[in-house]
Structure formats: structure tokens, C-alpha cells
Amino acid sequence: MTCTRWWCTAPTSCSSRAVGDRTAAFYDVDRLSATGPDTLVAPPTFLMAADHFDPDHARRPRPGSSWAGTQEPSPTQPVGFHTEQHFVFHRPVRTGDRLTVTRRPGGSWQKTGRRAGTMTFSETHLHFHDPTGRLVVETRWVQAAVERRPDPTSRAAAPGTDPSRTPRGTGTPPADVVAVGQHWTIPLIDEVTPATIAMYAGASGDFHPLHCDDVYARRRGYPGVFAHGMYTMGMSGRAVTDVVGHERVLAFGGRITGQVWPGDTLTARARVTDVYDDTRGTVADVAVTTTNGHGAAVFDGTATVRTA
């Protein structure tokens, strides 16, 4: 089954603020007046804001319908998590683009975990085309439905607030990515708050109650709400875009390896793993890992970028 919808890339400034992207062009009204918004390239994870343009999206509350947090959850109802997300860019996505979104299901499989029980994974593929029919971006996202609720007393479910946080890295990002072995550290946020989580929900259109409704989250065995996986990935993308900018990102993807809680500190570490020539020119592969204040990894991904 495929689904096609039209949408335009207008709210890039809201999305950039939600993931802490301080690129000056997103905030320079005078520049936009002089050059037009089509000069702006969207952050790598911006296309998740397509949820805003889907009137039937399941993660948005609707007037006249009961909000999920007011309903007593079934003990046997699996909880779904966004576990992986991958983007391949055939050209940059710019403000003002009008894109057709085509959705189709991918593969599905199961694994058994010690804490979560049976985990059922499923893929969804989205293709974004411009009005000429040219493919602009391919995305693949993976969701896992988890059989067991978490143990609220377990370390995995504990919020990340900790007054003795792991010291922040002080590595200085390079002026450009040119050599294998280059590495750098970028502080992403000193403290995640419920307000920053709500800000991302508003920018992305994803109002899943596990991220917005404390009662709902607690009834499902969590200490409270936690950040979207795509919030973590969006923040992590700055480890790349702060160095090479947005337009040179050819691909970005990875796994969401841990939950991010109010009180967490996030730091991204990047390392160039390969530099090579292909039909796109000279490109580099960059490994990106984001950790919380305890030093635990919450995102593990890779990006492919043009070196110049």
C-alpha cells in the first residue's frame, strides 16, 4: 500500500530551534528579505516534520476525541518505539520546496530480549519527490513494538538527572572534514527539560503521549515523559552540520540506543572514518555518537558528507 501527500518545507526555523541549531541564516530576517527563503537548506532530520501535513497522523490529538493519556492502558498492549532512522539526500531540501510523499511498508522481523520480551520490528520507507517527479530524499524508519512494560525501578528506566554528570568534552570542531581520524566533540544541551521536549513536539508534529503526557507515561511503567528519539537524532546531527553546514550532507542515519530524560546532558562525538572519491565528488563518512550525562550512548549513527 502506498500513500501520497503534498507538503511544503516552510517551518524550518521552528525545527532548527527545537534541535538547538543556531545557524545564523535561520534567524536572519534581513537576509531572507533580500535573498528569499529558498536559499535556506533544512536540517538533516527536518523531513520528520511531514507529520504536520498529514491530517490523519496517529500521533496528533484531535478535537472531540479522547486523548490517549486519559485512558487506562491494557497490560498486554505493546508499546511502540522509534528505534532507527535513515535519510539519503539526492539534493538539499530547501525552504519553499513542495514535495510529494510516498509511503510504503518495508520488512518486519522479531527478536527476543531479556527485559522487553518479544520485540516486533517493522520498516517504513518514504520517498519525497519534487513537482517535476525528481527524487529528492529517501528515508527509512524502523519501529519496535515491545511486549513487556519497563520496570520503573530498573536503571534503564531511571531519569537521567544526576548532579555529578560526566564532564563535558572540550574538543574543538575542525574547520572542515578532510582526513581520516579527525575527531571532535560538540556539547549539545546542558539540560533537557519538559519544555524542550514540548518544543520538539510542536516543531515536528509528533505529540505521542509518551513524550507529552506524564500520566500516560507513568501508567505504562515509566518515571515520566521522555524525549522523542528524533529529538535525540536531530540534536546529534549538529555534530556534522556545525562543521560542514547543511547543504553538504548526503546521508544521515543511525540507531536510537537509549532514552533521553528531563535533566539529561547531551554531548556528541564525531570521527571521520573514511574519505574517498565517487560520482558525487570527494566525500567523507563520519561516525557520530551521542552520550548523556552518565556517559551512556543514546544515539549511534553515521553521516556521509561532501568534503568541499
Rank of each mutant, 00 (worst) to 15 (best):
Y231V: 04
H57L: 10
N292C: 10
G202A: 13
P187E: 03
R59I: 07
D278P: 04
H211T: 01
T4D: 12
E191I: 04
R155F: 10
M1K: 05
F207D: 01
T95V: 13
V19M: 14
R115I: 07
P55R: 10
S108W: 07
G106N: 12
G107C: 09
A179M: 01
I197F: 01
A239D: 01
A157D: 01
F207I: 00
D176Q: 14
F226G: 01
T83I: 07
V88I: 14
V136F: 10
S74R: 13
D56W: 04
V79T: 15
R104F: 12
W109G: 09
H228V: 05
A42Q: 08
T120E: 13
R155V: 11
D214G: 04
R219T: 05
T83Y: 04
H246Q: 14
G245N: 04
R59F: 10
P223T: 04
N292T: 12
S33Q: 14
G205L: 07
G237R: 00
F53Q: 06
D54T: 10
F207L: 15
V249R: 00
R31T: 04
T185H: 10
T185M: 04
G160F: 02
R140S: 09
Q143E: 03
M1V: 15
T267W: 02
A144V: 03
P209Q: 06
R22M: 15
S74H: 13
R149M: 13
D274T: 06
R255P: 06
A25T: 12
R155P: 00
S164M: 14
F252Y: 15
H246E: 10
T273H: 09
W109M: 08
G64Q: 09
A195F: 02
R91M: 09
P262R: 07
D214M: 08
D213W: 03
F226T: 01
G293S: 10
A175M: 11
D206E: 04
F26D: 00
V19Q: 06
G258R: 01
D190V: 14
A158R: 12
R134D: 15
D213T: 06
A42M: 11
V29H: 11
V178A: 15
P194M: 07
F252C: 05
T290Y: 05
R148K: 15
H129C: 09
I186H: 05
S108Q: 14
L47A: 01
D278Q: 07
P73G: 08
G36W: 14
T153M: 08
T12E: 04
R165H: 10
L32E: 05
P43I: 04
G224K: 03
A198M: 06
C14D: 15
A268P: 03
Y27I: 05
L135C: 09
V137L: 13
P223W: 07
R255L: 07
H183P: 00
F226L: 11
D54W: 11
